[in-house]
């Protein structure tokens, strides 16, 4: 009998700790598949910082470095500068990348650091129990915005993809979602392009992935996907913001 679906060789057999319905598992699978398909798994080093991604070093079947909160881009810079032939990538959540680590992500883009970043935007702090993130939507209830986020108190949510696309060294910037099979396929294509950019040596690439957090959103997995479509997609439009071809 032919095998039509198999777990990627890019993942280990360790059981994921992610909550039921969370889309981290889907994105892990996509990254792993792309690394295998591009035949770079054996020369890749991933950097997982703090948040729900903290344990990713156990899940990816390649060399990994755990980083402090927000600093994955700096750690990845150190790795890549020592060993430029490695394929170096970071996997960061929105608390990590859009709050505590804004300086680091802006400056890898600024330097055009030849690394790839996978950015999980689920509009909330997952690991610490559902606090407001810079990406939390206006009106969204979290454990630190219990009556809903307001513009007056916390400003409007940060649009990281749009912001990073203004920086010259960020040569590939795309926002994707993993809410439907079609969007999952598009997300994989974008992740693949971001890694191909690194292999071409042209600069920094980032894919922002709209994701769900059923536990902290207090919704079922299915309702979470619908909430993402209804609330996140209008504010965080999917699409490409930057491709290397634009610069040629």
């Amino acid at each position: 009998m032919a095998i039509v679906y198999d777990k990627s060789k890019g993942l280990t057999d360790v059981e994921l700790h992610f909550c039921p319905g969370c889309t981290h598992g889907t994105v892990h699978k996509l990254v792993a598949e792309v690394l295998v398909e591009l035949d770079v798994l054996e020369k890749s080093v991933g950097v997982a910082p703090v948040g729900c991604s903290a344990l990713s070093y156990d899940y990816f079947n390649c060399d990994m470095q755990q980083a402090s909160h927000g600093r994955a881009p700096a750690v990845a810079t150190g790795i890549k500068r020592v060993n430029p032939e490695l394929v170096v990538w970071t996997y960061q959540g929105d608390g990590d990348l859009a709050s505590i680590g804004t300086a680091e992500i802006i400056h890898v883009a600024h330097r055009g650091e030849k690394i790839t970043t996978i950015f999980i935007n689920n509009a909330i702090y997952g690991m610490t129990g559902g606090q407001m993130a810079p990406t939390t939507l206006i009106g969204q209830k979290t454990t630190t915005t219990q009556d809903g986020r307001t513009v007056e108190h916390s400003g409007k949510p940060l649009k990281m993809a749009e912001m990073l696309a203004t920086i010259d060294g960020a040569k590939f910037v795309e926002r994707v979602s993993v809410d439907t099979p079609t969007n999952i396929r598009k997300a994989k294509k974008a992740i693949r392009k971001a890694f191909e950019l690194q292999l071409s040596g042209k600069g920094f690439g980032i894919v922002e992935v709209l994701s769900t957090c059923p536990t902290n959103w207090a919704l079922t997995p299915r309702d979470s996907l619908q909430w993402l479509r209804d609330n996140m997609m209008p504010y965080y439009p999917l699409g490409n913001f930057r491709t290397p071809e634009e610069d040629e």
Binding site: V45, V47, Q65, A67, S68, R71, A74, V75, A76, T77, G78, I79, R81, V82, N83, L86, E104
Partner: peptide
Amino acid sequence: NMVYGAAGAGG
């Protein structure tokens, strides 16, 4: 943190 990454990569 760059030092951390570089040291971990053997530099």
